[in-house]
Simulated scan of single mutants.
Amino acid sequence: MKKTFVFCALALAGLLVAPVAPALAKKAPPVASLDTDNDGTVDVNEANKSAEALFTKLDKDNDGTIEPKELQGRLSKKEFKAADPDNDGTLSKDEYLAVVGKLFKEADGDNEGTLDDKEFASKQGKALLRVVR
């Protein structure tokens, strides 16, 4: 009887925790998830590294460009148009990284070249997070 109770309790705990675990994983502080050199901040190189990985993941057809559909809402139509200077309806990796650089500068409120969690919490920081993770 005790073994059955323990098993049921563990099974129930698993059902309660399982849906919460992915939500908790996504709420990791931005700096912790992007700070590859563990200095407590994110610089533009770290942001670009993460953005490059995301670009590769989003490029489902492996053609080296991303179409608006592949971006999955990370950029508005207006933002996409501004990021597509050759007006070909896609973003190359260089065009995508140019967006990252622009958003990084906008999020860097103190102009020190790095971002902390407070800067990521700003409107500009949240916009940057949409394109780097």
Rank of each mutant, 00 (worst) to 15 (best):
D110Q: 10
E119H: 07
C8Q: 10
L58N: 08
L12P: 01
D108Y: 02
E70H: 11
K77N: 10
K93V: 07
D84Q: 06
P85G: 12
L58C: 12
L128E: 04
S92G: 13
K126M: 08
E95Q: 09
K3H: 13
R74F: 03
A83P: 02
E79N: 04
K49D: 14
D35F: 09
N48E: 15
N48T: 08
D43G: 11
L54E: 13
K118F: 01
E67N: 07
L91W: 03
L10T: 08
Y96W: 08
E95C: 04
K118H: 09
K126S: 10
L10S: 13
L129E: 03
N111M: 06
R130Q: 13
L54Q: 14
L128D: 03
K126P: 02
N87R: 11
L115H: 01
A83G: 09
G89W: 00
L24W: 15
V44H: 02
F80R: 09
P19W: 07
T65R: 11
S76Q: 06
T65M: 09
D39G: 13
K69M: 05
K102D: 15
A21M: 08
A13I: 05
E52K: 15
D88I: 02
T4L: 05
D84E: 12
L16W: 14
D117N: 15
K60H: 10
L128A: 09
A127Y: 02
K27E: 13
A23L: 10
S76G: 12
A51P: 00
L129Y: 08
R133I: 04
N38W: 01
D108A: 06
L10I: 09
D94T: 12
V42E: 03
E106W: 02
K118Y: 05
K102H: 13
A47Q: 02
V132Y: 01
K81F: 00
F55M: 04
G113T: 01
G89I: 00
K49N: 14
K78H: 09
F80G: 04
A21Q: 11
K81H: 05
P30M: 11
K57D: 14
S33C: 05
K93R: 14
M1K: 12
K93Q: 15
G113D: 04
A98N: 15
A13D: 04
E79Y: 02
Y96P: 01
S76H: 08
M1N: 14
Q72F: 01
K26N: 11
L54D: 10
D117F: 07
A28R: 11
A25T: 05
L71K: 01
L58P: 00
L15K: 05
I66M: 13
P68W: 06
A51R: 00
A32M: 13
N38Y: 03
L97A: 14
D108L: 01
K77E: 11
E119M: 03
G101C: 07
C8H: 08
P85Q: 06
L16K: 09
A18Q: 11
F104M: 06
Q124K: 15
P22T: 06
A127R: 06
P85W: 03
K78R: 10
D108H: 04
F7K: 08
L115N: 00
A18R: 10
V99M: 08
V6I: 14
E52F: 05
S33A: 14
D61T: 06
G125D: 02
T41A: 14
P68D: 11
F80W: 06
A28Q: 13
L103Y: 09
C8V: 07
A82Q: 10
D116V: 00
D61P: 09
Y96K: 07
A51N: 02
K123W: 05
K81Q: 12
T41R: 13
K102S: 15
